[in-house]
Amino acid sequence: MAQAVPAAHRRGFLSTLRIDAWWIEPLLVAASLGIFFGWLTISIFLDQWAFEIGPYISPVYEPKLFEAKGSIFISPAMVVLLGPVPFRATCYYYRRAYYRSVFLSPPACAVGDIGKTYKGESGMPLIVQNAHRFFMYVALLFIPILWYGAIKSFWNSDDTIGDTGIGIGLGSVILCLNAFLLMMYTFSCHSLRHFVGGGLDCFSCTKWTQARKRAWDWATLWNMRHRAWAWSSLVVIVFTDVYIRLVANDVISDPNTWGF
């Protein structure tokens, strides 16, 4: 027997007929973004707290263009603001993450978004997201720099701490993992996928376009896991930074062959 119950689709912020726990994902993502990006922001300007020891240097401070000045306004890590930071900020995956979790536009699928009006990325300020490709080009330059730091971590040239020469420590392994994940995050980028071959209409036309098709195939394969690369590389760079700082400040000791 039919019975009347309250009205249909309502409009407005958070209006939805969903009955699942749709709010968990945006809550977790917002908290995670806050924690990890919050720490990185602090870390960039925290050069008073040692960030290097022996063969290790925090990847946040790679490349170290000048010595720490102990100022909260100028830090050798600020070079990452030129490439890696805006690269992540304009990343297609992170855009999805923060548009949903922080901007609440919308907080989840089929849940009313927060704005009374909406123009998305069609006008200022969000139209600047189209610059993602330029930050990607800069981020590509950081990959050899990060690998240089990771490989250098197998050679201790600092004779004031432990033995010198070639060796290995837990920090070396962590730095290699960090360089690998950041490389994969960059290689799985949507803009890179477009750059290497996605912009072509004909893959088979010439030897050059066939080579670009092969590059596009690899980029596509990696791009399918872009979210996983984005999160794993973010978590690991924060972990690496914290680990090296804890070792450098004698809070924990690093198991290594140099004996420091």
Binding site: C109, K119, G120, S122, S191, H194, N223
Partner: peptide
């Protein structure tokens, strides 16, 4: 430009077309 890539279209597609990754983002890049 109005699309902000929240990927809900891809999530609901019954044909599992990767609408955002394979159509919208490549079109934005073009």
């Amino acid at each position: 430009g109005y699309c902000n890539i929240t990927k809900c279209c891809s999530e609901v597609c019954p044909e599992e077309i990767h609408i955002t990754d394979n159509a919208i983002i490549p079109l934005k890049e073009r």
